[in-house]
Amino acid sequence: MQVNKPSQSLKRPPAPGVDRTTLMLVGALVILLAVGPILPRWAMFMLNVSLSWGTVVLGMLLLMRTGLVSFGTGLYYCLGAYAAGALHHFYGIADVAVMLAASVAVAAAVAVVLGFLLAKYRDIFFAMLSLAFSMILYGLLVKTSALGSTDGFGLSVKTIAGFPLGEWERNLMFSTTVVVAFCAALGMHRYLSSHQGRLASAIRDNELRVEYMGASVRRVIHVNYVISAALAGAGGGLVGIAIGHVDPEMAFWTTSGEFVFIAILAGTGSVLAPFLGAIIFETVRSFAYEYSPNTWQLILGTTMLLVIMFLPGGLWSIFTRRKAA
């Protein structure tokens, strides 16, 4: 998947600290926090889910910059959601902060282990192997009647870091998602401009050269894999809590496919792209459901086709195209 021209990554690194992306992120944070409460409820919920998905795709962006496309992001997305759900289901814990911490921890822990194997693989082998792991989780969950099999089970939340949510639950969950997405995007932005982060595109361009320069390709890939899994776990936890229900479908390959869809739609040009991509994907999907309930898949497919044909670098390339010309 050719997303960025190699020359771009060789450009002078942006000045550390406050750059344009950081400003845009802070701007988006302020706007979303201010606008959230006055949005219609359906729009707030759609944004909530989109931003959570954006967080998942942000992790994929890191892998794609490293030259790897995962068709198994659903594994960590589902693990994150089930970790949050299981806390409620088995231990009666209903605190958003604790649940999210568990989502991230479980996803990251599994990624540390699987990373030893997956960091050896590239291209289609990486994609297929990651897909296989997510389908193993799907198979296990489907066989587990105690967790409701394909029906899944419900979860609910009462507090956030000890404070009761009360009737403000939806608003507070939205704000939490906005803040988590913001922190993830800002952290990713800083990471990508760091030494370790910049090795990602170097690996994609030429692994041998990176090894010659003294960096361990496998270690970088392993670390990036764990970061991407942690973000998928966080996204899964956020979605599980927002929906109030988790089921094995979250690990099914079509879910991972949707994340790849969003990633391609958005492009890897900026840490803001995954969020924009997710919002557009969810908006197009929802209105397609409403206006053409029989052919909504056709509309999504056409959107994808148009983006691939006219914006091969994803939607974000609208903003960067001028600069390059």
């Binding site: 929906i243 089921d247 479908e249």
Partner: peptide, 8 residues
């Protein structure tokens, strides 16, 4: 799936 159905 349930995520989309809750949204819808």
């Amino acid at each position: 799936g349930t995520t989309k159905q809750v949204s819808e």
